[in-house]
Each structure stands twice: as structure tokens, then as C-alpha cells.
Design a protein around this nucleic acid. Sequence first.
DNA 1: CGTAAAGGTCAATGCCCTTGACCTACTTTT
DNA 2: AAAAGTAGGTCAAGGGCATTGACCTTTACG
Lengths: 170, 170
Amino acid sequence: MPLTYFSHGTPAAERVNMVDLIRPDGYDHDFALFCAAHRRHNRDADRILAEYGLGRAHHRILFFLAVSPGMSVGDLCRTLDLTKQAFNPPLRTLLTDGWAEAAPAPEDRRRKQLRPTPKGRELEERLRNAKLAPFAAALDAAGPEAAAGWRAIMTSIAGTNLATLPPTPP
Amino acid sequence: MPLTYFSHGTPAAERVNMVDLIRPDGYDHDFALFCAAHRRHNRDADRILAEYGLGRAHHRILFFLAVSPGMSVGDLCRTLDLTKQAFNPPLRTLLTDGWAEAAPAPEDRRRKQLRPTPKGRELEERLRNAKLAPFAAALDAAGPEAAAGWRAIMTSIAGTNLATLPPTPP
DNA sequence: CGTAAAGGTCAATGCCCTTGACCTACTTTT
DNA sequence: AAAAGTAGGTCAAGGGCATTGACCTTTACG
């Protein structure tokens, strides 16, 4: 089944997630595919987050704490490109709900070392798996040479000048 | 050059867009690649939009008007999952700035047929090309068999149950 | 001791979205 | 023709989430 949007004349109720009939240009379909993949891998994680009353802001913090435990508040603010005022509410939720914990850094007790709790690690793992599972399944099923092609193309799309990209994963 | 985030111990200033050293799991790198590609293809379009004081909301409307000219306000609200109150400001901008135009539908003069002006089509084309160019270049450069693999994998990631995805392109 | 840094908090603001109510213009039903 | 319903626009109130600016405590360091 092809993937697209819709064409003029299609009833509004049926227009959602249909194929682009007006503009079947070379790469429009590939672009739509990319968008669909992106929404797919966000949807599952969002559902899990919603179970606990969390949002993507919490996930982003938890993600970086899992990758790099011990980051300070300032580190995370810079990494996520947030002010400390904006950063505080989601962090507070993570701390009071027991997803993360803070301890003063031994070498500089002004700084806080933030790290996920076991419960937080578990949640982050669940979220990560929800996002990774489609990649893992697709790349495994397609075989190593297709996976190599996929990686080459994705690297090319990502571009060489990665340093200029703002940091906003996941 | 590998693509990742950073590891604990990396100075905060250098942490942006570095490689994941702590968790080099199988598909974490692929996931990071996907995120980078996504940000890349948004960045260029955002820059163009900013030139004209527009945002992604305007782009989304313009995109659907280009794909399916003649949509009504209600059609677009349903498609974009917006209330008419939220939809009105960006639409107003598009109309008053000459990116789109409205005319009463001949068969039902309550409805408005919205369509891009030539100027609006041109902008949408620019935006679309900005988003498509990385795909086109990457897929062309990689050759047809790699492109086929890429498409198979992306289709697999997008999942079979596309109908359950909310409509939010581009 | 004085300065500076890390972190926290309060206030005001802006942007974008929501729901609810109410209005006009037009179409369809009765 | 009157009544009811639909498409669209607008006003008001409110929430979520980000911003800037100011001010505070705790800690580090010259």
C-alpha cells in the first residue's frame, strides 16, 4: 500500500494519511516516508510518557542523564538549550517522582550531580527501546547490505557539518 | 567521523553533537543518525521561513494548499488537527501577505476555497526543495540498490498501520 | 574577606494552543 | 417563507511552556 497524503476531491474524512496524487514527484514519497517513520517512533514513546504524566522534556533530561550520568544543572541547560527557569519544572518532577536524584559534586559542592535512579534507568530503557525497536527490527530484517546502504544515505542526509546542528535529541 | 552525543567527563562546551561513548549499543548510533537527519532537513526550511517572518504553521498550511488547492478552512482545521481559533492567525498572515488567496466556493458560498498564489507556490516550492534536496542528493549518490534498501527500511520503520498515525506533515 | 560561580526562585511577558460563547452569511429542510 | 443547520469569524478566559530580569543562598577561590 503506497503512502501519501490525498488529492483534491477526496472527502475530508478520508484525507488523513493518503497518497499524494497531485504531486508524485521523485522524492515526495520518500519524504513522506521519512515523516511517517519519525512520527511512528515518537508515538510509542509519547504513550509511555503519558502513562506517568511525563512529556518529552522529561524524556530528554532522562536520556542525557542515562547517557552521561553526573551532569549538572548547568550542563543540561546548555545541552538542551534551556534557561534554568524553564529547566527547573521538569527536573523537579523527575526528582520528586523518583526518576532521578541529585547529590552535591565532591569536588565542588555548589554543583549538583544528577543521575537517574534505578527506576529512572528502567523507564529510560523502556523509552529508548520504544524508539529503537522499529530501527532494530527494520535493519535486521533488511539484511546487512541494505542496512549499510541505509546508514550511508542517512549519514549523507544528516550532512557533514553536524557541529552546526542544535542539540535536541531524542 | 562517527556521529553521537558525548560522554561524561567531556567539558560542557564540547559536549554538543559528539559521539556516544558510554552506550555504543547496536542501534543507538542509527537512532542518532535519524535524529540528525530530521533536524537537518528542518533547519533549512526554518531559515527560509524566518526570512519572511513565517513559521512551521504557515508552511504546513502552504504545503497542503499546494498539494490540494481548494481546501476549505474546515478541511485544513481537520487535517492539521487545529481549532479554527488557532488556525486563523497563520491563515490570516498567509492571506494578507499574499501567499494564499480565498474565494467562495461556487457550489456553496459559505465555504472558502483556499489556494496558494503564484508567489505562495514559489515559496512552497523553495521550502519543499529545501527539505527534499538532502533526500534527493543522498538517494541519487547512493545508487538505486541502496535507495531501494533505504526505502524498504523506512517503510518498515514507518510501520504497516499507517492509518493510525496523526496527520502532521511536513 | 571579597568576588565569582552554581543553583533556586519570583515576577512579568509572549506565544500558541485550548474551550465556550456569540455573531454573520449562506444552505437546507419543513 | 420560516426554521434549522453549517461554514466561517471573533471575543474572552485560561493553560502550557518558553523567555528575560532581578534577587537570593551556598560554595569556591584569589
